[in-house]
Design a protein around this nucleic acid. Sequence first.
RNA 1: GCCGAGGUGGCAGAAUGGUUAAUGCGACGGACUGCAGAUCCGUUUCCUGGGGGUUCGAUUCCCUCCCUCGGCUCCA
Length: 478
Amino acid sequence: MRPFEVYDTLSRSTRRFQPITPPKVGMFVCGLTPYDDAHIGHGRFAVVFDMVARALRRWGYRVFYVQNVTNVEDKVIRRGAELGVDPLKLSDRYFRAWRDAMDRLGVLSVNYYPHATDYLPEILEQVRTLVDRGRAYASEGSVYYSVAGFPAYGELSGQRTEALRPGARLELDASKRAPEDFVLWKAATPGEPSWESPWGPGRPGWHIEDTAITVRLLGARYDIHGGGVDLKFPHHEAEIAQAEGATGQSPLVNYWMHNGMLTLHGEKMAKSVGNVVGLAETLDAFGPEVLRFFYLNAHYRSPLDFVAGKSLEEAREAFATLAKPAEAIRVAFGRAGETGTAALPDGLRREGEALVERLDATLAEDFRTREAIALLFSWGRSVGPWLERLDELGSADLAILAAPYDWATEVLGFPSGPPAATDVGPVVEAALAARARARARGDFAEADRIREDLTAAGVAVEDRGGSTRWSAPRRPPS
RNA sequence: GCCGAGGUGGCAGAAUGGUUAAUGCGACGGACUGCAGAUCCGUUUCCUGGGGGUUCGAUUCCCUCCCUCGGCUCCA
C-alpha cells in the first residue's frame, strides 16, 4: 500500500492516510437526488471520486465505494406531482439516466448504489435509537434531532449553533423545539409516498439515509466521506450528529473530502440557479475523455469555472495533444516485434521508467491531478521526436513509451479506447482516389473540394509524405 | 455579519523560503506541403491583488486592507 496524503476538511489540514483496517478502505460519497437531468456539475464530483477510488486501488487498497441515491425527498415528490408521475418511478428513471452517464464517463469504481427506500428498516432503527438515547424527540408525527444535545455540531463547517439562529432560512416550524433542529422522520402528507413507523406514517428526512446506510454497510466509523463543499453544512454536519449520536462512536469519518464547485461564468452551477449545462448533451458533443480531462485538469478542491464555447473546446485541443502520442505508441506496440531496428537512448528510457513513479507520487500528495497531467504533456514532448520512428522500436521500448499513458488510463480514465469503428471506409477511399487523380493532373481546386467535403463530414485528411491518411472522428463532431 | 476557499502571463491553471515561476490553450517563426491541415522544432526574457513586517533572500511565512467564489437548513 502506497502511503498518501489527503486534505481533511474537519481538521483543515493535509494528513497522511491511515485506514482503520488495512488494506480495506470504506468510502462513501453523497450521490444524487435524481429528479431531473444531471448537469456537468454533478459529473465533476463523480469523476473526482472515481479518480480517488482508482488511485487507491492501484496503490493496493481494497476500496469499498458506496454512493447513495436519495430517491425519496421533497424535490422528487414535488417534481413527480408536477408531472403527474409516481415519484419513485420518476427518481428511478433519472437514476437510470445517471448510471448511463456514469458508464459513458467511465465512472466504474462505485461498488454499490444503495437507494434510500431500500434501507427503511435501518433508517427506522436509527431514528428509534436516537429517540431512545435522548438525541431526538417526536413531535406531531415527525421526529427531530435535538442539536443542543450534540456539542460537536458545527465543527466540520466552523458554524456555531448560536450563529445559526439569526439565519434567514431557518425553518420556523412550530413542531420543533429549536430552530436548528433538523428532521429525521417527516410525518406523511396525504398523497405522498409514506411508510409505517412507530410515530405514524411518514418518510425519511434528508440526512438520515446516509448514516443508516453507512452504519449498516461501512460500520460506525469509516475511512473516507466525499461530496461537494456545498454539502458540508448542514448535510454532513447532520450526518456526524446522527451517526455519532446513534452509535456512541467517534469520529464517524476519518477523512472528509470535499470537491470544489463547478461554476458557470463565475456562478455556481445549480438547478435552483437555472444555469445548468446538461451532462448527457455534453457527453454527446465532446465525449467522455474531454470532459474527464476538463474536470481533472484542475485540483479537485478548487472551484472550476466553465465558460460556454471555450472551456471544453480548449480541453478538447489539449486532450488531443495528450492523446495523439499515446495512441500512436499503442498502435505501434500492437505491430512491433520483440526487437527493433532502433533503440531508445538510455536517458529517455530512464525518464520513462521514473515517470510512472513520479506520477503516483504526485497523486499521493492530495491528488494533484493537474500536476500529473502537466507531467504527461512533458512526456509527450520528450517522446515527440520518436513519433515518426515508432515502427523502428521493439516492444520493450514501446512499452516504456506507453507506460505513463497506461498509468493515466488506469487512474485518470484517459486516454483510452480505439477510434470508433466505421463503415464509411470504402466511400472515403473512393473519394480519396478521385482526389489523388485530381492532384496528379494538377487540378487542385477539385482536390481541395473533395477534401473540404470530407472534412465537413468529419473525416480528417492528411497528406503525409507520399501517402494520404484519413481518420474518422472518434465521436460525432460538435 | 459569521465560516471556508481563492486572487499568478492574452486566457486556463500548477508549484516553490533561493539559479531563467510548470503545463496547456492561443499567438508568432521554422521544417514539411501544390496550398492547407496534422505533426515536429523553436519563440512568447518585461505575469504572483494593494500596503506593511520577518529574512541575506518572499510569489511562498506573519499582519492588514481590497476584491471574487462557496456555505450560513434546496444543493455534487
